[in-house]
């Protein structure tokens, strides 16, 4: 294949990575590819079932609560806040990666702490939302919400909602754990000793992927 790379660089002639990235980072990309197909399979099976069903609940009727503002009709507001939190924590994560490029250990610490706080806030929001929906008798196998046309809905709506947001929430949780480990390693000076912060980049890739999946979960469950 003709290459776009600088003139004369023979990427495939051996002796160097043809992808110009470190092995671990490349493998993180491939892991994320496989994870993307896992989430894709979940979301597409949801879409397939939804296309195969005559009616479906209106998300604006289901997701319209906000903490401490009980009884108010606020469709999409809370989930938009969750989206904002996750995007903001993605930004602090890139800033941590950028600080790592500059070998700025202090800034890496600062931005990793902010990213972890963002992740925990997101998990808190999700915990509140699940608790709220459970309080409305929604759970796996139980769906109190009627279809948009008023007919009786199947439990597929809640089954898919809790399975997919739960799977995503588990990814956020493991991302927070990974970020905490990276923060500890950074505080111990492991990366400074090593001379590079590639581990922060790999954790960052995972964290952005979690944000990426949320973009699709947000669209599929709350908007469409």
């Amino acid at each position: 294949m003709a290459q776009m790379a600088p003139a004369g660089t023979k990427w495939w002639s051996g002796g160097k990575s043809p992808f110009n990235v470190e092995y671990g980072k490349l493998m993180m990309w491939y892991f994320l590819m496989s994870d993307a197909f896992t989430f894709g399979a979940f979301l597409i099976s949801y879409g397939s079932i939804r296309f195969a069903t005559n009616g479906w609940p209106d998300p604006n009727e289901v997701f319209r609560a906000f903490p401490l503002l009980e009884g108010m009709n606020l469709p999409l507001v809370f989930v938009s806040l969750m989206t904002f939190i996750l995007i903001a924590s993605s930004v602090t994560m890139v800033l941590a990666v950028a600080a790592g490029h500059n070998n700025d250990q202090k800034s890496v610490t600062k931005y990793m702490i902010l990213t972890i706080i963002g992740g925990l806030m997101f998990l808190g929001c999700q915990a509140w939302e699940w608790t709220h929906l459970h309080g409305e008798h929604a759970w796996w196998g139980r769906n109190p919400f009627p279809n948009a046309d008023g007919s009786v809905a199947t439990t597929n709506f809640t089954n898919f909602f809790f399975t997919i947001t739960g799977f995503h929430g588990f990814h956020v949780f493991s991302g927070v754990i990974i970020n905490i480990i990276m923060l500890i390693k950074n505080l111990r000076g492991d990366f400074a000793k090593r001379g590079h912060y590639l581990m922060i980049e790999k954790a960052g890739l995972y964290w952005h992927f979690v944000d990426l999946v949320w973009v699709f979960v947000f669209t599929c469950f709350y908007l469409l």
């Binding site: 992808f19 990235v21 990309w29 993605s90 973009v215 908007l223």
Partner: peptide
């Protein structure tokens, strides 16, 4: 719904290209 899907793909593009930095990697990757 069509607009939502287009906007979602736009968001996905920006996250992958800029945050995950894929746009700045070499073509092979």
């Amino acid at each position: 719904n069509g607009m939502y899907l287009i906007l979602t793909c736009a968001k996905a593009f920006y996250i992958i290209a800029e945050f995950m930095h894929l746009r700045h990697e070499i073509k092979n990757l």
